[in-house]
Simulated assay, not measured.
Amino acid sequence: MANGTDYYAVLGVSSNATADEVKKQYRRLAKQYHPDANQNDPKAAERFKEISEAYNVIGDAEKRKQYDDMRRLGAFGGVGGFSQGGARSSSRPGGFGGTGPGQAGAGTFTDFDVGGIGGLGDLFSSMFGGGAARGRNKGPERGQTVEQTVEVPFRVAATGGKVPVEIEVNEECAMCHGSGAAPGAQLKPCGECGGRGVISFGQGSFAVNRPCPVCMGRGSVPSERCPACRGTGEARVRRKVLITVPAGAESGHKVRLRGQGGKGASGGQAGDLVITFDVLPDRFYKRDGLDLIATVPINVAQATLGSRISVRTLDGKKVALRIPAGTSAGKRFKISGQGVEKDGKKGDMLVEVTITVPDTLNEAQEKAMRDFAEASGLKY
């Protein structure tokens, strides 16, 4: 991608966009600019490549965090000595200042450490898939870490259980095994980066290496692209995973499943799956810490004279509850030990009564109410 292009701008989302918003926008753009749907428009293929590269970073939680760190340091805008118009070099191995690989050139990013976050070259390397290491001697790469929000029914979150989740991850293309080449295609050195797999860009005495956007860091380009992945070396696949919801889980609770994310490339370790729970509301229960609040309607006669009602607990059992005479709306009654259990502690169920008034009365009911009103000295 061009020097310092903002990946958020490429996808048309704000830097505060959620993972779901980014994914939704990527799908929309990928469908719009996919080469198969735009065979007579060569610019669409370039746009599709830009969109895919942007989502490869913004769509990955760890890469996005690193990328955001770089943006704050000004590596993608006018701050910190970089700008959209910064010079780029693909011919000098050490970037600007005439330094070679491994040399401590004047202010090269590969040797520049900021505030304990490590070398900025390392950040770029990890963000874009390993920099020069992605070249002709590509080593194992860790798979994509996937973050996803999952809706969980209230009662499953309260008592614990399992929910199925469908995730979408980038995995190494099964046809070309990540090379991007069609079966039998020949590989030749990339003309953009001279076969190095990286290009350098920057301004003044600063420069940073990043994977070549033409060969995608491989250092070579195929005579014919893989028809399955169109030369990207990756495939977008959907996979179903069964997630265990611990008892007492609340909205915002996260679980990390090691090795359940994207498949690693070249024998690398699989990424993780990070799930954030979004607990759905229940029509009967509400939650206050470990306590459950259940709203139960009673009529005027029950509230006035007292009554015995039946209340269903979270585990489906019925518990008898005595409503005393003269109960007012909003009164709460506690059923001990029938709340949410978590970490060895268990809350209570709080039954809150509401008083319902009938819309219509039959003749006998109306007479009884009038007699009651007159006996009470009420005027109506």
Rank of each mutant, 00 (worst) to 15 (best):
N16F: 02
E21K: 09
V22P: 00
K24P: 00
R28V: 13
K31I: 13
K43F: 15
A45H: 12
E46L: 15
R47D: 13
N56V: 05
I58S: 09
G59A: 13
A75H: 01
G97V: 11
G98F: 12
P101T: 09
F112D: 00
D113K: 08
G115I: 00
L120Q: 03
D122W: 04
S125L: 01
G129L: 02
A132W: 02
G143P: 08
V146N: 01
G161L: 03
P164I: 10
E171S: 08
C173L: 05
C173E: 05
A185N: 02
P189S: 06
P189R: 02
S200K: 02
G202L: 05
P213N: 14
R230L: 15
G231Q: 08
K240A: 14
V241R: 14
V241D: 10
G248S: 03
E250C: 02
L257N: 11
G259L: 12
G268L: 07
Q269T: 14
D272L: 07
F277N: 03
D278I: 03
R287N: 04
G289Q: 05
A294R: 09
P297K: 02
N299V: 05
V300A: 11
T304A: 13
L305D: 09
S307H: 09
R312T: 12
L314K: 02
D315Q: 07
K317P: 00
T327L: 04
A329I: 04
F333S: 04
I355H: 08
V357N: 09
P358N: 13
D359V: 11
N362R: 07
A364T: 11
F372W: 12
K379I: 12
